[in-house]
């Protein structure tokens, strides 16, 4: 593998890690507040469809992004209703919402565009365009550093940078603000938060809404940046991979970034069987590469890379003592 190929693969690593990262941080907020959410997948899918459709209809990727976020938040609120207000089973709610998204997205897309559940291809302003960072062009001939800056760091869509910035922001919110402290407390020991006179329900709803926003961006990125339009089941299990990354990262923002980059790297590799063949010396079947992220996720879950302990009150509805 030469330097140029490596750069190419790292470049697509970053592109592919972005939706994982956004979804992973989304899950982080929810689970830190004690609400399990295996419906990240469905929220992303819903947001992808909504943003793809609206971006096509309005011609603006940013309006599409807004629509994606709204769609995703709607699903979040249903999840909140089921798991916070009605103290239902959070896992089942997540599963149901994934199916709901899977069915509704196709239903709506077929109804709107009649193209077998796809949205029409996006172009121009309906799609997020690559951003040239300052001096990228001037520095491109500086060996190594300049090339890396030009090829790898510059030239992504705005959403990639938003996702990357979301990592320190998440860290700051969770560990440096009073809101973050309460959010973490509500996932570990809701009784103490309640005793302190802070509403558990409101905190959890806020967390779930943040999850909706981040999943919305993730889905919009899928349809309006990574690809040019929505296609049925286009998230292809990324919501679950993000969950695995979250567990891998032990519910910490910076580790979430590393985990998502790793999973993104694996997905990038799976797109380049020729490179793998060149590196390992034999032909690896494509399905094996497709399965690789899932297999790795299982290995991660099996705890062979360190034991992960979830927030203590995770998955349990909070019942106020009377």
């Amino acid at each position: 593998m030469d330097f140029a190929t490596l750069l190419q693969i790292l470049d697509s690593t970053l592109r592919l890690a972005t939706p994982l990262l956004l979804a992973c941080l989304a899950g982080l907020f929810s689970e830190r507040a004690g609400i399990f959410d295996i419906g990240l997948e469905g929220k992303m899918l819903m947001a992808a469809m909504a943003s793809g459709a609206v971006a096509f209809l309005t011609g603006s990727a940013w309006v599409g992004l807004g629509a994606g976020i709204v769609a995703s938040i709607l699903l979040s609120l249903i999840h909140g209703l089921a798991s916070i207000t009605f103290r239902g089973n959070q896992l089942i709610s997540g599963v149901a919402l994934n199916f709901l998204a899977s069915g509704l997205t196709v239903l709506i897309a077929v109804n709107l565009f009649g193209q077998g559940g796809r949205t029409p291809p996006l172009s121009g302003d309906a799609r997020f365009q690559a951003i040239e960072l300052p001096f990228a062009e001037a520095l491109r001939d500086v060996p190594v550093i300049g090339t890396v800056y030009h090829e790898l760091i510059s030239g992504h869509t705005a959403l990639v940078y938003i996702a990357l910035l979301a990592v320190p922001l998440t860290w700051w919110v969770l560990f440096r603000t009073r809101f973050g402290l309460r959010l973490r407390a509500v996932g570990e020991n809701p009784e103490s938060v309640d005793t302190a006179g802070v509403s558990v329900v409101r905190l959890r709803y806020t967390a779930v809404a943040i999850t909706g926003v981040l999943c919305g961006i993730a889905g919009a990125y899928m349809a309006t940046a990574l690809q040019a339009g929505f296609g049925r089941e286009m998230t292809a299990g990324r919501g679950y991979i993000a969950l695995a990354a979250l567990i891998f990262a032990k519910w910490r923002p910076w580790y979430a970034l590393y985990a998502c980059l790793l999973f993104g790297f694996l997905q990038a590799l799976a797109l380049r069987p020729d490179v793998i063949e060149g590196t390992v010396g034999f032909k690896v079947p494509v399905p094996a590469l497709d399965a690789l992220p899932y297999v790795l996720t299982v290995i991660v879950l099996a705890g062979f890379v360190g034991r992960a302990i979830p927030p203590r009150a995770g998955g349990q509805p909070y019942v106020k003592e009377r």
Binding site: A82, F86, G88, A96, S102
Partner: peptide, 27 residues
Amino acid sequence: SIPIELRTVVQALVILFTGALDNAMRM
């Protein structure tokens, strides 16, 4: 001209109501 995916929606709603919103149903 209703897409066949309507089945998935009904299935999702049944799971949601019987499995996650069952307390609401009981109420």
